[in-house]
Structure formats: structure tokens, C-alpha cells
Amino acid sequence: MNAFDLTEDQQDCLQELINVAMGQASDQLARYLDTFVYLKVPSIEQVKAEHLFDTLNYESDATAIVSQGFFGYEGIRGEALLMYQPKDSHRLADLLGYEADELTFDEQIIDLSSILTTTFLNVFASQIDNQMSYSAPRLLSANIGKVNEHIQQQAFNWDLALKVRISYQVTDYSFNCDMVLLIPEAAITNIKAVLDRILAEF
């Protein structure tokens, strides 16, 4: 066990916060998108920098990844990666309520990523009495080969990250995508402090 491992209580607490946030987020999304949005039970685990590429690659044959940074008070910060597969993309404009010729595919997934990320994290933040700000979402690459290259070429300045993975399903549009929240070391300590405070209040 290292200093960045969550205790069992902390892990349960975080899981519960995420579950509640997912419930509310899917409700808001359903209203906005006018269709049901299912969020699968999330997985929470630690990932080492050198294995980031493997876990991303293993979990989905994503062809496009959109990154968006988030930052709140008390040093809660990280990066959200939204991962898409090619078969997911056919009716995206339709789902978002746009005409297909109004915007490019890149813009569609960037738009959707931003909506998914901010909706979930806003609810999550309000549960821990926090407030999130976001960077502009960026398409890392529309080509997984290049994403792999991109990630593999990085010399990360972190060793360990907390990884929360949530899968979204919009069955009416046969659409899936994965949201992977990555919280770097320094922020894990801060999240642990917040979790401890919440646990103490019970």
C-alpha cells in the first residue's frame, strides 16, 4: 500500500459519490438529449504512468480521444479523456440536436465530450461542496495510432494516477463511449482529504 492508495472507507465513499453523481448526470443528459442515457457501474483504480497507454488501449479500440482538463478548489484537478469508437458515430449529430451538415464529426465528439464531462463533474463537485472549472476540450487525435504515439512519446511528470472509468450508453442511438477521469498524484492526496472530511461528518 502506498500513500496514494485509498483506504477501503475512502474507496466506498468515492464510489458512492460517483454513483449519485452518475444518477443525476444521466437524468440531466436524458432531459437534454431527449433519450435515455445509461451509465454503467464505474471502475476506480490506480494506474501507473507507464501503463496508461496499455489500459487505454486495452479497454477500447478507440479511434478518437477528446481531453478536457478540470480544476476546482482544494486542489481537486485532473484530466477527463472521452474515448470514441468509429461505429459510435453515425447518428451523433442527430443525438445532439444538430443538422449533420452544420458541424464536422470532430466538432460533434468535442461537443458531446464537453457535455458529458461537465455534466458529470458539476454534479460531483456540488456533492463535495466544490465548483469545477474546465479547459476547452481538445481532440488529441482522430486516429488511435497517433494517440498511441502521442501518449507513448510523453515523458510523464507523474508516476501514479487515480483512474475512474464510466461507460455511457445511449441505446436509442446505439451509441457508446467511455469517460476516463485521471487524477494525478498530487490531487489524489487532496481528494483523500476531502473524502476523510466527508467520512468524519457522518
Binding site: D106, S114, I115, T118, T119, N122, A136, P137, R138
Partner: peptide, 15 residues
């Protein structure tokens, strides 16, 4: 979407 979801939204030069 900004009004309904109370979320901030973006539009970047690359798109």
C-alpha cells in the same frame, strides 16, 4: 444547452 444543462460550453478555432 448552456441554459438547460447549466454547463459551460466551448467552440475552438480548430473546428
Amino acid at each position: 444547452s448552456v441554459i438547460q444543462l447549466k454547463n459551460q460550453s466551448f467552440c475552438g478555432w480548430e473546428q
